[in-house]
Write a protein that binds this DNA or RNA. Structure first.
Ligand code: ZN
Ligand code: ZN
Ligand code: ZN
Ligand code: ZN
Lengths: 334, 334
DNA sequence: CTGGGTCAATGTTCATT
DNA sequence: AATGAACATTGACCCAG
């Protein structure tokens, strides 16, 4: 216990924090962890508990066990309660990374990098910037080469829908995990999933899209968008759902790409589940009994929401417009 | 990764320490315990003795009994004396932790599993009996009133596909949670989801359906069925996925039915997740976190699998056949 | 600095005696 | 009641950006 300080930097660190106590158990703190000064033990305990969605119950049944250095391991429930009480931040816990490898090839390094949540938030902000990035989409592509469609809605409304679609495609290209596959592969997938991306994006567009869709008179599309809107997908969920839409092993052009896509898919599933459970935990951790169930249901509903996205678009009157736009975009690219 | 030392590293550890003997009794040591190389037995004995503040007295009265693997249990007094003699460290014994009844281990999991799968299998067999229940589907409906379709496949193959579809509809009517809504509501849903039920059922039909579909020349349907087949859905999962297909609040005919459908949906999500996690835990013996992750991914893939089921059927050459069959069935019902 | 993973050395459990 | 093999948890220590 007293031989904690081994290396030089470590020693300095222990000197600096020598007088700071763990907010949870009172042991010596080794710095801030998850937003709070706490010891290695409590930090690690918190991380593990969140990662595995640990489901404790109070050993003594009272829920108010004393948590100090000696007794912190008596009741994990009360220890975790204390962690929450001192405001340890659930969403600072990242997804589990793979086993640490000594030497990584460049390809592997890239793959491993994607596991980090730092990149996740970067990715999220890239995909949904605070400023309206979609306004920077090439106007000439929009207005000139795509204006030959036959549609009954007004030019402004059509323009808006086209903007949404272009934003989807643009952001898909910027999606980090999607960049792990070749351009050929990306196009093969986008040909199949652009409509899903559109519906998802449209249903959470900053400007309310319902009136625009209504004026198109497309009842099916309106229903699908309304249903998706009702899910109240937040930015992070939106970002991860987009990755799920894009990670489609079934559209792989070769076995290597298939593996990458499968990896991306599993990764996105795991990250979405973790995020949802973190959010659920953070929002109502008073009723711990039902929290896990709530989390599972939310996660399930998000995934099931994806099945509607492409469901009725073939019956949509917008289908022809979009199909022609999509074809032109793909042609422009090639 | 945290619990890695439970199985994988444990073996390596025994290899590494294979030639090191317990300082107390000479048995094989499994590493350092309380500051000394000793065996599990002596380690555990020392801990219990310290915890209980045990006070032994020498059986033989001499205080110098030989302590070896065979005789170490003869005289606890001399065993503990030996422990002290080889410098086992009393202060490394920690305070007792609270009883962990939450989980663990093989026995409890197996017991729980048996109970659960017994309860669930009743329902599963209801929905998919060992005897081919679909053979009891009304023949006259199949052969007579539905044979007016135009299709290129042989009569036998068409018959088989019709059998599958009829089985889906039949089993849907027998599905317990589905019976909680009115017949009007059931038909409203079935009109929309019959194709999903068909694809799911066909992809796991006892007789291999691929050749039949192949002969229809429908590439899309074949791909969807193959992809679904690749999921290797077991009977219980199949049953729960069918409930998920049938529980569609978006097709509710009134608010009351919507609530029921929402309840059914959440229930099915929770049950599928529970089942998948139980199966994963029972089959996979990796670390807790890895197993947890595997379970989440499996669950996610099952739900994502649903999105394909209706995806391409509108492009299917079988679509017209089925649509006409379905229409006729619904007309017969009404 | 503060995320992450590692793994020796703690802990508990439970069939067996 | 005690034992000890088997399995779970802890936290000091290391790395990386
Ligand atoms: Zn602490
Ligand atoms: Zn407690
Ligand atoms: Zn021994
Ligand atoms: Zn003795």
């Amino acid at each position: 216990m007293d031989a904690k300080a081994s290396s030089a930097t470590e020693a300095g660190r222990w000197k600096i924090y020598a007088n700071i106590a763990c907010s949870v158990c009172g042991d010596r703190s080794s710095g801030k962890h998850y937003g709070t000064f706490c010891c290695d033990g409590c930090s690690c305990f918190f991380k593990r508990s969140i990662r595995r969605r640990a489901f404790y119950s109070c050993i003594s049944g009272t829920g108010c066990c004393r948590i100090d250095k000696m007794r912190r391991n008596w009741c994990p429930f009360c220890r975790l309660q204390k962690c929450f009480a001192v405001q340890m931040n659930v969403s600072a816990v990242q997804v589990e990374r793979g086993p640490r490898r000594q030497k990584l090839s460049k390809r592997e390094q890239k793959t491993t990098k994607k596991l980090k949540s730092k990149n996740l938030s970067v990715e999220a902000s890239k995909q949904f910037p605070p400023t309206m990035e979609h306004e920077r989409v090439e106007k000439q592509t929009t207005s000139e080469s795509l204006s030959s469609s036959s549609m009954s809605s007004s030019s402004l409304q059509r323009e808006m829908l086209i903007q949404i679609l272009l934003t989807c495609l643009k952001q898909a290209q910027h999606c980090e995990s999607f960049q792990a596959v070749s351009e050929l592969q990306r196009n093969a997938i986008l040909r199949n999933v652009w409509s899903e991306l559109f519906v998802l994006k449209a249903s959470h567009w900053p400007i309310d899209i319902v009136t625009v869709i209504e004026s198109c008179g497309d009842r099916h599309l309106l229903e699908v968008i309304s249903a998706t809107k009702a899910l109240s997908v937040d930015l992070m969920e939106l970002s991860l759902l987009e990755v799920l839409i894009l990670s489609r092993p079934e559209y792989a052009v070769d076995p290597k790409e298939r593996l990458t896509l499968q990896f991306n898919l599993e990764n996105a599933i795991a990250r979405l589940e973790l995020y949802v459970s973190q959010q659920t935990f953070a929002n109502h951790h008073h009723s711990i009994e039902q929290t896990r169930s709530q989390s599972v249901i939310r996660f399930g509903k998000l995934l099931l929401g994806l099945r509607h996205l492409s469901l009725h678009l073939h019956e949509s009157s917008l289908n022809n417009l979009f199909r022609s736009i999509a074809e032109k975009i793909f042609k422009l690219k090639e």
